[in-house]
Simulated assay, not measured.
Amino acid sequence: MRASLFSVVAFLLLTGAANAQASLDGVLDPVRAKYALPAIAAAVVKEGKLLAVGVVGVRVVDTDIAATIEDRFHLGSDTKAMTATLAGMMVEEGKLRWNSTIGEVLGQDLPALRPKFAAITLAQLLSHTSGISPDNDEIGKLYFSADAYEYSLTQWRLRMIGAWGSKHDPSFPAAGKFQYANLGYITAGAMIEKVSGKPWERLIYERIYAPLGLSTAGIGAQATFGLYDAPVGHRTDDKGKVTPQPWGEPADLPASLGPAGLAHMSVKDFAAWAAWNAGEGKRGPALVRPETLKLLHTPVVEMQIKDPKPGTPKSGAYALGWGLSKFDWTEKPILTHNGSNGMNFASVEVDPDHDLALVVLINIAGPNADKASLEVMKTLYETYVK
């Protein structure tokens, strides 16, 4: 496998010199077959230029509907960096501060919040240092409550925050302050909605998708209802049976989780977003000032990774919407994040020192998707960091 990959890489380097974009299909197809994936896409952007891109496989397992370069894939928690960027915009506009508290912003709407919960800051929410619990059964009941259908998304986010924050104080794991909390990002999204006067869903279109020209970007399940017009997510049961989940409620997490992880877009658009971050404000559009973007990328808290998989980091840090980890193939920690709604997998690596962005997208989740992504990332990083 490695020998064949390196042969393909050599071909990429030769053809890439003559062509604007090299095809990654030859790298991706053996990986797709090795890990039995429906589809996999990847792209490389360096110094703002798309150097290589590819997609192989099918939109729906057991069909011959080929995935294409323009197809939309689900990003999962890679959406969090976009929510953090929206927060940065609100800070620059004077509508929020990094130390604005939940109580200051949402207290009038949620007067019953416990004082310690109300004292959590925006920066703590975005760095997963708020002490809000990771997803558990109680939080899951809020996400999937039938009552959500009686309210707008903005209203329901407030009701979820109030239901949790009126009963629970912040609590931290014994290992340290880092505790990954989707409800924390929902809360940050609600704070952004309150001070902007607009739903998070409108803001991400107006303030990120449109300025960056992300024409395929959207929110929620990636396929149009009733059509197989994108690589749909696939769920794997305990016996290994793979079932497509193309539309409706089973195809994604509840819509109220938008700020925590419901974006979708094509591999080229995802790469464009990653490349904008790799440029650290050197290239337009000026969504936020360079110093704000630098702050979003700056480590806030160390995190320990239990039982890391071979080749994956044993430790790292979390910034605001981004993790930072040193891989076996990197000289030092780089920006990275994974995302999954349980049916799709997305991974991004950003190395500002080399102005390099790598993305991998897969329409199934689980250990094989993770391994496949790491294998592709390693090959591409070693090829294009020159």
Score class of each variant (00 low, 15 high):
149 Y>I: 11
241 K>G: 02
59 R>E: 04
126 L>N: 08
333 P>V: 02
124 Q>W: 02
48 G>N: 07
254 P>T: 06
254 P>G: 04
279 G>E: 08
117 F>Q: 13
274 A>F: 00
95 K>W: 03
166 S>H: 06
198 K>T: 01
204 I>L: 13
155 Q>V: 13
386 K>T: 14
165 G>V: 04
11 F>N: 12
236 T>P: 02
66 A>E: 15
41 A>G: 05
353 D>I: 02
75 L>M: 13
38 P>M: 07
374 L>R: 15
305 I>W: 00
258 G>D: 10
244 P>M: 01
127 S>Y: 01
247 W>M: 07
118 A>H: 11
90 M>H: 08
128 H>A: 04
126 L>W: 06
209 Y>S: 11
215 S>Y: 00
206 E>A: 10
69 I>Q: 12
87 A>R: 12
57 G>H: 09
123 A>Y: 05
240 G>N: 05
128 H>N: 10
45 V>N: 07
371 K>V: 10
2 R>E: 07
133 S>E: 15
300 V>C: 03
174 A>D: 13
95 K>P: 07
195 V>N: 02
307 D>T: 08
238 D>A: 11
243 T>F: 12
165 G>P: 09
19 N>A: 15
220 G>E: 06
356 L>F: 10
142 L>I: 09
288 V>N: 12
330 T>P: 04
229 D>K: 05
209 Y>P: 06
163 A>V: 06
